[in-house]
Design a protein around this nucleic acid. Structure first.
Lengths: 342, 342
DNA sequence: CTGTTAGCGCCTTCAT
DNA sequence: ATGAAGGCGCTAACAG
């Protein structure tokens, strides 16, 4: 009862060979319609299920792909994974998820685990730009396991990636603040060893330069993606003279921390101070003082990553392909930086 | 170069049998230390990686477990999955995720997919209480694949589950509103075919009865877990006479929708109207008018689910075990229902 | 201690 | 159109 039925069981029952059963099940055209039908019927009757493990061993393809993210319980990464899963599901791939918790060693370990598990591809948002993971990354490529970066990528020849234009996002956000009349725009930046944060910063700086606003290094403060860090950074900014009159934060969480700190100091938003975040986390929209932010289209990003993978898989025998997809960021102007409606 | 080395390659190189290599690699005590060491050294030298697919076929264990949730990009489910992954990772299990999107057919399909993939266990938060999935659930049990419910469970003998005490959560929330002096407490309830929502409702009702407050059916409104539905339900409630002076919502999202609608009607919170949600979504804490809510400890829930699975796996040969774990809900009193501080 | 053999379930030449 | 045989990589008897 609990024993699984194999093609041999079917073969025995029908007095034919297992090979024929296999062929019939796979709709091999060389099988007579009658036996084909017969086999398929008895297969369902006997509650036959293909053992994908056997198939995997035989074919070398597990039907699983691995996704590595810093953590899965954030809106951004959760939504990307959702996008990946939705796109891969119809193609019969399963999604295995791994978390690095921003730990490089964990990242290496996860890649090894996935390699051991014989995944058919790896999609990864890397932890940081350290050299530590270079070796393992290259061993993935050497094994010909399709590798795709999303959001946080490494620049490696021949490796596809799906990202958003962080430079443009930073530029748009800053330009918007300038248009709102802000004169002294500060920036809460993330880990500069990550391309995404570097690019947001560069976009910020370029927007200032393009609009004849002096770039002031003291207005740029490193801050983790947390309320606490955002608040701390804001305290530092307010101590400057002149203090800034706007903040472009590379993180929504830091932006919220900043807003709370500004309010605590009796500063009116957006009248006296404007804030723009990055990420379009759900809460930015829900707040009474809704927070302007840059959307990263995580669902589309997930979909694209999966699509690039599927494309790559189909060509992997013939030639190498490299595809760098850059999505457009979308600025959502909300109350925290919107003086016109205020 | 890209060819994978097998134990046969090692065997050939060392002029010993593959079996010995296998044993040495697995630290079988019957192998002499010298050969054991030799094998392991040449293995690393030759960059040997165990093919887990072969092992899986041989042992019937894939090393993967499947997790099925309605969707993964919510704080609640995302955090549960995080908890599961964290607990399972050290035990060398991979986590395959599936989404149902609240579609029963998709749920059945997902279970079949996981079964086909020979997962070593399935953890599921079911879509609803319909009879539709009974058949497939039982076929999982018949195949002796460990099955564990979390949060949204079915009551089936011999099947373990990890949930929170929704009755208690509903009771606590309602009791709190009563203590704050609310007299006419309404309830936004979810899909009553799901045990969790039914229990939250029952807890609500019991708290009323225990405190000599008449239960008024017209104060109970079905509402999906969305801002829109929360707002619509609130409009209906405000049209009643007498209108309620508090809402216990079984969903944080509906609670937020309610709050927005109340504000739009010029009603002061918490002075004139108190609101308590359910779920402790991040935004409830971030709001200026922070929302009181019931925390479901999703991280612990995830951890527990994984632990129960591991426990079950270790006993599966000897005897069946059933473990029903019920976590305690935690009420977070915040501004939306806190008159004393207000 | 180690080698031989067989088999997990499937597919795929090579025959017929 | 079908059967026989071999192999994917590993492990677990069963022998020595």
């Amino acid at each position: 009862m609990s024993e699984k039925t194999t093609i041999y069981d079917i073969a025995k029952k029908l007095n034919i060979s297992a090979a024929t059963v296999s062929r019939a099940l796979n709709n091999n055209p060389k099988i007579s319609e009658s036996t084909c039908k017969l086999v398929q019927e008895t297969a369902t009757k006997m509650n036959y299920k293909q053992n994908r493990l056997a198939l995997a061993l035989k074919s070398g393809k597990s039907g699983n792909i691995g996704v590595i993210v810093p953590r899965i319980n954030t809106n951004f990464f959760g939504t990307i994974i959702r996008g990946i899963e939705e796109e891969l599901h119809p193609n019969k791939y399963n999604v295995i998820i791994c978390q690095t918790h921003e730990d490089e060693n964990r990242e290496i370990e996860n890649i090894n685990t996935l390699l051991d598990a014989q995944v058919d591809g790896i999609m990864i948002s890397i932890t940081n730009e350290s050299k530590k993971n270079e070796k393992i990354i290259h061993s993935v490529l050497q094994k010909n396991v399709p590798l795709i970066f999303f959001d946080r990528k490494k620049n490696i020849d021949g490796v596809s990636s799906v990202t958003i234009d962080d430079f443009k996002g930073g530029y748009m956000a800053t330009k918007h603040l300038i248009d709102e009349g802000c004169k002294r725009i500060a920036h809460l930046c993330g880990d500069q060893s990550l391309e995404i944060y570097e690019n947001r910063f560069k976009g910020y700086r370029q927007a200032l330069l393009d609009n004849n606003i002096e770039f002031d290094e003291s207005y740029v403060i490193r801050s983790k993606s947390s309320l606490e860090d955002g608040a701390i950074a804001t305290t530092k900014l307010l101590a400057l003279s002149p203090a800034p009159d706007a903040i472009f934060s590379a993180s929504d969480f830091a932006a919220l921390g900043a807003i709370q700190e500004l309010k605590a100091n009796g500063i009116k938003i957006p009248q006296d101070f404007c804030v723009v975040g990055f990420g379009n986390e759900p809460f930015t929209k829900f707040m009474e003082l809704s927070i302007s932010t840059v959307d990263q289209s995580p669902l589309e990003m997930g979909n694209m990553v999966a699509k690039v993978f599927l494309e790559q898989i189909n060509h992997t025998e013939n030639f190498k392909m490299e595809k760098k997809i850059v999505l457009n960021p979308i600025l959502h102007v909300r109350k925290s930086s919107s003086r016109k409606e205020a």
